[in-house]
Nucleic acid binder design. Structure first.
Lengths: 325, 325
DNA sequence: CGGTTAATGTCAACCGTATGACATGTAAAA
DNA sequence: TTTTACATGTCATACGGTTGACATTAACCG
């Protein structure tokens, strides 16, 4: 690969001028710029980003740590983040933690060693800054992991309320909440539950809470868990699930066991992953605006130097009504 | 951040020794190694990967270009690749091309500028090397894009045959093939179709082929396309879909229109994404061993210098029988 | 015509690590 | 005691690009 120096020689200028053109184009005469660009084309020159990063003490990478890439919600997050990261001239370093704290810490340290411009974390770990410090902005999404780390979430509390209100308005009386996993403090799902419970109680309905110890998002045992719960609560007529996959599992169980959805049981999911629309019956759900969140998060990192970063930012959610209610 | 030099000073050795310890530990005395390690701990030292990469003219990044991150099959690919890449001490640079040739070329050029150790591409573009050259191994997965680029695929031809044979063995007589998108030369899906057609014809059954011009994997118009097709082919009793999502859409349509699956219509998908098991009825499908492919591809890149790379490698597929047949 | 300004050159240091060549010192083996 | 091997130091250069300080040149203005 050609280097800056070769380009400079070919264009009859010095490396300083070429470098200036790349970094402060205003300082260079238009005709010189053209000459240099021609030389670059001739030599098929491309700046070595590694060398640039070293010199600037900062790379163009943005690290994204997610618990899973297969889970449809995070897949959506990844795709959306990638788009915004690329649109801003940065590159995505993807890290899949599989919910393991050890891995998250390793990833953090790796990202530091690579001088990333920022880290986006959708994480399990309560406060990772206790383990690894990093000289770049860190933003957590989907949950609040520490008072020192900016968090960007969607309005889970309202999401829970909206679900409750819809079920009530449809005439449900015995309403359950299905928890997709272990409830962690600060985790978005727990706010969903709180909003949901509050709205029900305001209408004099006592929520029936299902929860279990499974901490993976996709589990082969969902059917068993659902079966066990419905055995003791056969009479529920409404269910709010903390994510769409759980909702799909519930509908699947219901269909198999001759329970009509939505006739006998109305089901609401959360996230609005592609599956929700594709399922049969299609699933009513609360959509998190992953797109808005991604846009905001990436912009925040890119303009970190210029703008202050709010410690918490909340985006609205939207009820998407489909066949399952 | 501390530098090599500071560590060396603290440990009472020179940078050369420290660098040697990091790269050729055999040359350094165990007790010296301990002293240096202690100094590193004291200073919270971490090698600057950027500087390393510059010096070595090669980074630890592996680029993965996929058309989509949301699509469940590619989500599976991403997760699997990430695991193997990380396990080998490399880092994943994720690129989502959205099927756009222009983007693929940009990504390629970006990866080159970042001196990646290798590129894995699940791509649309027929032969990207015509546009961008790169001094690193390139491997295409899921399809053959050029005679000059190693390809790693699963045995799509057999997959198609297996689907055909299952439908025949279940007694289907009027069997259709649903194509998820435009058929591109060399694309894995076209081999699936060929295997499928061949197996049917060998049994004296003429396949009914559905295909359309949609080139996105997830489209809102699948229902319309299916409806149009079934209008003129209402009598089919077996269907092989080129991917699981299409199979889900077909089942959804059938369910909505009172066609019993598998009673009146048996459906087979392809890929075995999570959805296949979750759907109701669960979907019989051909599983591609994404795990094996990922493992092989990443190992090939990591050991590129040592081993020759086969121009084509094919992994077996597996029939997963579920409720939809 | 002197003064100002814009465009570029010159020079050099720096980012943090790798590495080759060669010298030195030390301890074990002959 | 001499030889040999090993461990480390010393020195210097390279990787490719950035940047600040300052000098030079030519063109423009009043």
């Amino acid at each position: 690969m050609a280097t800056l120096k070769e380009v400079a020689d070919k264009a009859g200028v010095t490396v300083t001028t070429v470098s200036r053109m790349l970094n402060k184009p205003d300082m260079v005469h238009p005709s010189t710029i053209r000459r240099i660009q021609q030389a670059m084309r001739d030599l098929d020159y491309q700046p070595n980003e590694i060398a640039r990063s070293l010199s600037k003490k900062m790379s163009n990478f943005i690290g994204l740590i997610v618990p899973s890439a297969r889970n449809a919600f995070f897949a959506k997050v990844i795709e959306s983040m990638e788009r915004h990261i690329t649109a801003n001239g940065y590159k995505l370093l993807l890290c899949v933690s599989n919910h393991e704290r050890r891995k998250e810490i390793e990833y953090f340290s790796m990202l530091r060693a690579n001088k990333v411009a920022g880290v986006i974390i959708a994480s399990h770990t309560q406060d990772i800054t206790q383990s690894v410090s990093i000289d770049a902005p860190i933003i957590s999404i989907d949950r609040i992991i520490s008072p020192h780390i900016s968090a960007v979430c969607s309005d889970n509390f309202s999401g829970g309320r909206m679900a409750a209100e819809l079920l009530i308005s449809k005439g449900c009386k015995r309403i359950a909440y299905f928890n997709g996993g272990i409830t962690l403090k600060g985790m978005s799902a727990s706010l969903r539950q709180q909003g949901f419970e509050q709205a029900l109680r305001q209408q004099g309905i006592e929520p029936i809470i299902q929860s279990h110890r499974e901490d993976r998002f996709i589990s082969m045992k969902y059917q068993d868990i659902i079966a066990a719960f419905l055995e003791t609560h056969a009479d529920i007529d409404g269910a709010f699930c903390s994510n769409d996959i759980l909702a799909a599992e519930l509908i699947r169980y219901a269909t198999k066991n001759g329970i009509d959805v939505p006739g006998q049981l109305r089901v609401i999911g959360y996230d609005d992953i592609d599956l929700a629309e594709l399922y049969s019956p299609s699933i009513t759900t609360i959509r998190q605006s992953v797109e808005d969140i991604s846009h905001f998060v990436v912009e925040s990192i890119v303009h970190f130097e210029d703008r202050p970063m709010p410690s918490q930012t909340i985006f609205p959610v939207q009820l998407i009504e489909r066949e399952s209610t």
